[in-house]
Design a protein around this nucleic acid. Structure first.
Lengths: 206, 206, 206, 206
DNA sequence: TATGAATGAGGGTTCATTCAT
DNA sequence: AATGAATGAACCCTCATTCAT
């Protein structure tokens, strides 16, 4: 007779995180239930508490997993020479958009935005762990490009955020607002538009 | 002897909506309680139900009030001639940013993003009422500018969204992420940056 | 310009009682709302409190109105001679059934049964006011018939209740259980059956 | 140290149903609270929801338990020969009355009557589950007795209902109206009276 | 006399968390 | 390690009643 359940201490956290992302995404932080997550993960409620301290901790762990995944996929951003700036940027933009639109990652964005204001531990994770990894990194890359005279001198933090904004808003409008079904756009067109606007905007024409 | 309470059928909805925005913003949709909103509005729980059908309806009404406020403040967007395009756009951008950063409006954004995926009535309001008012309008304005040859020909919907994205991400980063306190930026700098990038990006250089 | 409302101190109680019976009957005591009753009566909530002390008092007044109506309609029950006992009883039974099945009266029965156990004031009204008017009266009539040797000697109280039971159960099954629509019966058949069974059962065959 | 609580998944439903009947009976459907029922059952509110979908479902389950109990106690009703009809019927009537007057069963009747008109699910249970078990069965038995010439030919459905009515009204008057304390009657007298009236009434004298 | 805005207590239900098994 | 029965706090909503107008 096969046992009713098997020990899988190695696999459990991953199963639970995957189920949690799915459930949190489908129903929101408050709307998702531990029961529902457990069922989706193929375990029972109590089991989750063996691996995570509680619902909030599970939520943050769920988002962290996506941030980590994105960071690992992220190529080292570097802007080198004016010559191939356009092609290089276009390629980068398309790849980055593709990453961002990875279903699991895109789903995490609105969850993050929806809760960060009401979950101190989440804000802490963002401010201390995640933000530095991204916008700071991008700002630094831009600054070096400005120093090299490749792009015009602008506030690097603001510029980085502008660039991130262009990407982010597409994730939000496409995934969050489900505009996909209303006004669908091709990924290549988006990348092309963003890149063109940004590059033309920041290119050093002097 | 002064009465225990006074009738204010005219003022009530506004009082409640203001309190609701404050509470929803502070604690999130699920975290806010009708009791708390009522207390903040200076009425009792039951009174809210005289004016709003329930928590969800109150939430949507709260957001609608901000959308309406923004729409009323919004100047008729018009892009006329290349000559003064830069100055005109810079002024417009600054004014628009100022509007968006109006505390009550900025607070509404993350609430909206956090719930739209799990509140069908809210999505309906957005898709049928609010979205057409903004991105469609902006896209139309851009299209006419393209037709006039003022700016380069790009997909007007994508371009409009890109532009909106630039603005939106600043609202989000400043208000949602409370980055204000971490990496403060001057409104004028933001407007200048956005405008420069966008205008340089879309100007018809032919 | 006609006034928004007119004073009708004479007509109000009757309007309210009629509306109350309708609403209580449709939704039950707890299910009916003062708001609903008021609306059905064409007045507003507050007005009801000008005429009735509260919901419970209104409920009892509603039932009392039906009891009074029935009592007024009720012919003086008298059983005279063996000769015309059958015809007389049959006629009486049919008339009584018809009275009982008067919509407003039939509606009151289940309301009464449903609440009497949980409403001390209602029980008091029943025990002290209403019951004596009916089963006591009937028992007395039966007792005199027994004394006259018209019907066999049986416990008059039990016999009276048995007779009342035959009628009551038809009201309940027809109106309460809405069996009408499932197994409809003609009033004459019911009266005939009850009368036959009862008369044959109680006739003094000695 | 003894545990704070013990698991009793087998016993819980029964405990809850017993407590529910008691509370519903004492305070009526609306008057009873889940909290009160839980306390009476020795559990907490939440536990009830592990076994019943909600208050209404609990209510219907409570009544169903009594109907089932009655049905199980009910002997196969059979009317065989004229010879011992009287004795047989008298015995049956007394036994049936005794069953009906079982405190838990008698308590269910007024609850049922009080709510059936305002609880669609309850009406469905009655019309589709419970009614067929009783009045239909009795009508069939009477019909066969008529066919056998044991009792006179009358509408079997009406006759069955008349008979049920005689019993029911005693339950109602004794338990519902708590007439017990006002005009107490001996069970045997009631059975004797009902049987006599009914049998004399329906006996085939031709 | 009539209105209806406002109150506020109360109850059904949900669900994160605990803990006996 | 895993289960799932049980807990209990919290919250939305209803509605009888009050009272300013």
């Amino acid at each position: 007779m096969s046992p009713k359940w098997v020990r899988q201490p190695e696999a459990r956290p991953g199963q639970i995180l995957a189920a949690a992302l799915e459930e949190f995404s489908r129903r929101g932080y408050r709307g998702a239930t531990m029961e529902g997550i457990a069922r989706a993960a193929g375990v029972t409620k109590g089991t989750i508490y063996l691996y995570f301290a509680g619902k909030e901790a599970l939520f943050i762990a769920t988002l962290r997993a996506q941030v980590t995944a994105l960071a690992e996929l992220l190529p080292g951003l570097r802007i080198e020479a004016e010559a191939d700036l356009g092609d290089y940027a276009r390629t980068m933009a398309a790849r980055f958009l593709e990453l961002l639109m990875t279903p699991s990652i895109a789903k995490a964005a609105p969850l993050f935005i929806g809760e960060i204001n009401h979950m101190p531990a989440l804000r802490r994770a963002y401010l201390e762990e995640w933000m530095p990894q991204f916008s700071m990194k991008l700002a630094a890359a831009l600054e070096s490009a400005m120093a090299a005279g490749v792009i015009r001198r602008l506030d690097p933090v603001i510029t980085a955020r502008t660039l991130m904004g262009m990407f982010t808003i597409f994730v939000l409008t496409q995934e969050v607002f489900e505009a996909k079904t209303v006004t669908p756009m091709r990924l290549e067109d988006i990348a092309e538009t963003i890149t063109t606007i940004f590059l033309e905007g920041v290119r050093n024409t002097r």
